[in-house]
């Protein structure tokens, strides 16, 4: 029987394996070393790898993220933890102006093999400043790659690939998912001896013929729950497509699904205006217009800053019943 580990443990294994794989990999972030990680993603790594490879940074995101970008230009492969991806906004100039554009502005003379990772989700009652989901913002910037795994399996396979990638990868996790367990094979059960999932390949998490529920990150889990409900209560069988990587984007898997089901719903925690779903909806209508039997619709966070009040935040971000109702509106 395959083992199950948490999303957090899967990331930890991926980081540990990449520290072993390449001496240039260094983990830097607030509380990642001696504290063992604010969310325990890096637990045990400082004990194992020591001060050189796992480094506690002061609360200074613009400084240490920019420092990581500079080091990566010299061939270091920093994996920078943001305690919350919301704190990326403190380091925005470094992440957008430097990491994303230095390759282009140098005419291809420089590249920036950095990973910036951390949780980007709402639903934990921490208010608007700690609940941002900036996948769409960073995916808007050419030069950047944006990844958002939904399961432990994907988290491990994608973090390893992200660290080996030679472009900047912003890797957005979820505090809600950290404690959830999924089957993740041991390395000796895998061809090639390790779990590597390419960026730019979506995953069909559930198969159905009536509807395509397309999502990324934690919303994939919401979509899966909605799909089960649609099947059991309404006899509607949905494909659930998990983007896994937002940029690069696997359009083929999305379009194959929509051409089969003729109906599409995008589910995400982003705000609606120029969210990831807006890009996907635009792409579907352009490339699969003749296959559509209904408009492409989106389920997003309600269009206000994240609210604190726990029962209200539950209904501010997508939940299964909301997805079910949206799906029924076009089925």
């Amino acid at each position: 029987m395959p083992r199950s580990i948490t999303y957090r443990q899967a990331l930890n294994e991926g980081l540990d394996e990449e520290l072993a794989h390449d001496d240039n990999v260094v983990i830097i972030g607030e509380e990642v070393a001696e504290y063992n990680g604010a969310y325990k993603v890096t637990e045990g790594l400082w004990n194992k790898w020591g001060d050189k490879r796992v480094i506690d940074a002061p609360i200074s995101e613009a400084g240490f993220i920019g420092m990581g970008i500079g080091a990566s230009m010299l061939g270091v492969r920093p994996v920078m933890e943001l305690m919350f991806f919301s704190f990326a906004y403190v380091a925005f100039d470094q992440m957008m102006n430097n990491a994303a554009t230095v390759r282009y502005m140098s005419g291809g003379l420089i590249h920036v093999p950095i990973v910036v990772r951390g949780p980007a989700n709402g639903g934990t009652n921490v208010g608007a400043t700690h609940s941002h989901t900036p996948e769409n913002i960073f995916a808007n910037m050419p030069g950047l790659k944006v990844v958002s795994p939904a399961t432990a399996y994907d988290a491990k396979g994608l973090i390893k690939t992200a660290i080996r990638d030679n472009d900047p990868v912003y890797f957005m996790e979820s505090t809600v998912l950290y404690g959830q367990e999924w089957e993740v094979p041991e390395n000796d059960e895998i061809d090639g001896g390790e779990l590597l999932i390419p960026l730019g390949v979506a995953d069909v998490k559930r198969e159905g013929s009536d509807l395509s529920l397309i999502a990324h990150g934690g919303s994939v889990i919401t979509a899966l729950k909605a799909a089960d409900h649609l099947a059991s209560e309404h006899g509607i069988e949905a494909d659930v497509i998990d983007l896994r990587s937002i940029r690069p984007l696997d359009e083929t898997t999305i379009l194959d699904s929509v051409k089969k089901t003729n109906r599409a719903v995008y589910v995400e925690e982003n705000k609606p205006f120029c969210g990831v779903g807006a890009q996907i909806a635009s792409m579907i209508q352009e490339k699969a217009f003749d296959y559509l039997d209904a408009p492409v619709v989106r389920v997003t966070s309600m269009d206000s800053p994240a609210i604190y009040s726990p029962p209200l935040e539950e209904i501010q971000i997508p939940y299964p019943e909301l997805v079910v109702n949206k799906a029924l509106s076009i089925c």
Partner: peptide
């Protein structure tokens, strides 16, 4: 290593180049 357009934006990169030297 540039040539950077945003005032002060190169200063963390300079620390990073130094970090890279020390790391290596």
């Amino acid at each position: 290593w540039g040539g950077h357009g945003i005032v002060g934006g190169q200063t963390p990169l300079g620390a990073g180049l130094a970090f890279g030297l020390k790391y290596k």
